[in-house]
């Protein structure tokens, strides 16, 4: 069973600058081994938030959508970061067949879009971020789901 969450807060992201600011806050708290789920509909800004995190870490190259490739690896600021997107999975078992289990280890940071497409097989999230489309901008709902996630989000919640 999951333990009860003690840290949960929301951020309103009016524009790209607000997304970048949230990305920078998260980037400063990333630790190896962390698993972050990025949830939300198409166009909710999951890849945009990932890009903001990578920019804040100092990555200057292109941060493309991993929808087609399923995973985009990054080595930045002494971190191994994997940006996954399981949107195209028809069955959670494809996660196993794609050979992704090894990517989730103590040395890597995994950001996962569409984790629900690998439901039941994917290691649980330390932090879950739900992005919702508003009339203007997005709302980010951020939850720590493990002790590790709490450590990451400490001081971020007001």
């Amino acid at each position: 069973m999951h333990r009860r969450n003690h840290i949960q807060f929301t951020r309103y992201l009016r524009d790209e600058a607000a997304t970048n600011a949230l990305g920078a806050e998260l980037a400063a708290r990333l630790e190896p081994g962390l698993i972050i789920y990025l949830c939300g509909d198409l166009g909710a800004g999951k890849t945009a938030l990932t890009r903001a995190i990578l920019r804040a870490l100092g990555f200057v190259g292109k941060v493309k959508s991993p929808t087609y490739t399923l995973v985009e690896p990054y080595e930045v600021s002494r971190l191994n970061l994997y940006h996954f997107d399981f949107y195209r999975f028809n069955d959670p078992h494809e996660w196993l067949d794609a050979g992704f289990r090894d990517y989730f280890n103590a040395e890597s940071i995994c950001l996962v879009e569409w984790p629900e497409k690998a439901d039941g097989l994917l290691p649980p999230a330390d932090v879950r971020i739900l992005l919702e489309i508003q009339d203007v901008g997005r709302m980010a709902d951020i939850t720590a789901e493990t002790k590790k996630g709490e450590q990451c989000l400490q001081r971020m919640a007001q």
Partner: peptide, 13 residues
């Protein structure tokens, strides 16, 4: 090249 989504991906989404 594209900085984010590929054209075909944009069509599909």
């Amino acid at each position: 090249e594209t900085l984010d989504d590929a054209a075909g991906e944009a069509f599909d989404k």
